[in-house]
Simulated assay, not measured.
Amino acid sequence: MTELSAFTGDDLDLILDTPGVVMKGAIVADGHKNALAFLKEVTAGAKEFRAAQKHENAFVKAVATALRERGTDAETDDRELPFDDQAMTQALKQAQAATALLRERAEAPDAEAYGAWLLQIATVISESVKTKEGGFFSKKVAVSEGERVFLEHLAQAIGR
């Protein structure tokens, strides 16, 4: 198993900051500014962060535990929502950089589990609120078109 203590400075910050950045990217991916939807998405993300503290992969578990100890919690981190495409772009760039770093310096199963966890965070958030795509009389969908595109780009960024 790769030890989180093997990373320091900017590398450690990248590994620890990326899950929160991915969460923000997933939240804004639907393109809507709805306070209730925002709260549901933040809550879904927070549950995923807590669940990761019991993750089957020890490295992901160590990252989630370090986030909790660091005081970075999805529910308390940045109540302000960046409603722009920059959040998604930043999430994709950072996810790509973090997974590339782990592929280079961590054991393969740990790098794979971390990337899968990032995708899981975004998926859970995307599926947490059903939205109407086509207007008032359209049916609700679990994942909007914007969220679907974000999830596809995230999967590509992490090499899945």
Rank of each mutant, 00 (worst) to 15 (best):
G45A: 08
G45Q: 05
G45C: 07
A46K: 04
A46H: 13
A46L: 06
A46V: 04
K47T: 10
K47V: 06
K47I: 06
K47P: 04
E48H: 06
E48A: 13
E48W: 01
F49K: 04
F49I: 07
R50D: 14
A51P: 04
A51I: 03
A52L: 04
A52D: 02
A52Q: 00
Q53M: 14
Q53L: 07
Q53N: 11
Q53H: 06
Q53E: 15
K54R: 14
K54I: 07
K54F: 09
K54G: 07
K54V: 09
H55Y: 06
H55W: 06
H55E: 11
H55N: 15
H55L: 12
E56R: 14
E56H: 14
N57D: 10
N57K: 07
N57W: 09
A58C: 11
A58I: 13
F59R: 10
F59G: 08
V60H: 03
V60R: 08
V60Y: 03
V60E: 03
V60A: 06
V60M: 06
K61L: 13
K61R: 15
K61F: 00
K61H: 12
A62H: 03
A62P: 06
A62L: 00
V63D: 02
V63R: 00
V63G: 03
V63C: 01
V63I: 07
A64G: 04
A64H: 02
A64W: 03
A64F: 04
A64V: 04
T65W: 04
T65C: 02
T65K: 13
T65R: 09
T65D: 13
L67R: 04
L67N: 08
L67G: 01
L67F: 00
R68T: 09
R68Q: 09
E69M: 10
E69H: 09
R70C: 01
R70F: 01
R70K: 13
R70S: 13
G71W: 05
G71L: 02
G71V: 02
T72M: 11
T72N: 10
T72Y: 15
D73P: 00
D73H: 13
A74L: 10
A74H: 07
E75T: 13
E75D: 11
